[in-house]
Structure formats: structure tokens, C-alpha cells
Design a binder for these strands. Structure first.
Lengths: 133, 133
DNA sequence: CAGTATCCGATTGGATACTG
DNA sequence: CAGTATCCAATCGGATACTG
């Protein structure tokens, strides 16, 4: 068993071969890790959608938060916004190429979730059982 | 951390079948989407580590938040905790098999981040430029 | 229909002090 | 060294009301 000092030394030597680049993942999660972003990407993964359609699709998101979420996605270039000057106004949101490129990583995550949820819930149950006994 | 649970329930009631399973991704992000969890997994991806070593490795995390993060990871079965009754005490954290299985999905995300960060920052700069003009 | 502005309760998380 | 408890500032996000 290595001492913690040895571990730290190893980590330092390996810092250019980081198996999980924490910073990179952290930056992504800062953007998509919030309450609604992934839901929106999921909605738009099927094709362009209007504001209220997205809202109905997701369900439970407030008007305000959907606006903010879409604005962030737009500013990051993941979503494009097209406004038609009709009355009433019509605004369509659509994933950009960049946004679509995010679907695959999310699917990998979804697969992990579906495959491992039972194990996680089992672990959680065991953990709570111990705390109660 | 259990913020979008209500949303997940609603989506479940709607029986949508998505290319991106929002419920599943949402559940994962509820767990790993916070500020520190991925950092801890990244630290432990190289091997067992003691509390203060993790803290130094991550840098910027408070004592309190590291404790909470580790406790959550432990309760989900992603991390194991081993305490040695020595003086001073020694506690080692290590990724479980389940925790290690999460590394690959995170690497996919990290790869996406590294590959697309320039595009995202460019988009953000363009967006801000428009808002200013 | 889409978007903005304001208010305010709820949650987050750092700082600090204390314990075994 | 590792962990817990308390306090409190900052942020988040829903509700509501208003505009083009």
C-alpha cells in the first residue's frame, strides 16, 4: 500500500495523463449540470421546437428558467434561435452541429445510468439501513 | 442535489422514448452534476486516497463540502470508506467497481469538452459582442 | 406567443469553531 | 487527521405582473 506522499508524487508525475480530466469535465458540468439544460437538449434532439412546445415537453420548468436556459445554450453555440416577425411571434430553437455533437456523450451517460441505477439504489438503501440501525 | 426529481417523475408519466433519455441523464446529473463530485472521482481514479490528500489535490474545496461529497458518493456505492483506528486516525477512500465504471462515461465527456471548448468560447465571444454592439 | 423585470423564499456552500 | 455543528452571505429559482 502506497503512502499518501507517494500517491501525491505519482499524481504529480501523471498529471499530463489524467484519465479523467477533472477540469474539462467540470467545465462541461458547469454548463449542462444545471436543472434544465439536459432536458432542453433532449427535447431538441428530435428537431426544431418552439418555446412553449419545449416548455410543455419538459413540464415543471418555469417560464423564466426556460428563457435563461435557452439563452445560455444559445450563447454557447449549442442552440440556434430563429425568430419570425409574425403576429403572434414565433420563435424556433434548434440544436446546432455543436449541440448535436453533445448528444452522443449524453447517451453514454444515459446508458450508464440505466445500467447502474439498480446498483446505486441498492447501495443507497444499504447505506440508509446502516444509519438507522 | 435531488433537485430535478419532480421533473423526472413528470417525464416518466409522459412515456416519451428519447434518443437522449432525459430522465436517466437527469438522475446522473443530480448526483454528479454538483461542484465537486467529478473532481473527487477524478482524484480517486488513480487509486485510494486519504481525506486531506483529496482536499489538497482538488484545491479550493472546503472541509465541509468534501465531507458531504464523499458521504454522497459512499451512499451511492461509488466510493468505499475505510477507517483505521490509529492515532492520528487514517481514513482511505477508494472507487468501488461501480465508481470505476463511471470513469469511462466521464472520459467521453472530457474528450468532448477538450475538443469543443474552443468552439464554445468562440460562440460565447460572438454572442457577447452582439449584445454589446 | 415570446420575453423581461421584480420580488422573495429556499437552497447552497464557505468560514469558523469544536470533538474524538 | 478526520469529522461534525452552526452561522450567515450569496445564489438560485418559482411566482407574478407587465411588454411588444
Amino acid at each position: 500500500m502506497a503512502t499518501s506522499r507517494a500517491v501525491v508524487r505519482q499524481l504529480h508525475e501523471q498529471e499530463h495523463h489524467d484519465p479523467v480530466d477533472c477540469r474539462a469535465v467540470g467545465q462541461v458540468l458547469d454548463r449542462i449540470g444545471d436543472k434544465w439544460t439536459v432536458m432542453v437538449v433532449g427535447a431538441l434532439s428530435k428537431g426544431p421546437m418552439r418555446f412553449n412546445a419545449i416548455m410543455r415537453f419538459i413540464g415543471g420548468v418555469s417560464h423564466r428558467m426556460l428563457t435563461l436556459t435557452l439563452r445560455n445554450l444559445e450563447s454557447d453555440g449549442l442552440v440556434t434561435r430563429t425568430a419570425y416577425a409574425t403576429i403572434p411571434p414565433k420563435v424556433e430553437y434548434e440544436l446546432s452541429d455543436l449541440g448535436r455533437s453533445l448528444i452522443e456523450p449524453l447517451e453514454v451517460l444515459a446508458t450508464w445510468a440505466q445500467h447502474n441505477r439498480p446498483a446505486v439504489e441498492e447501495a443507497r438503501a444499504r447505506f440508509n439501513a446502516r444509519r438507522t440501525e
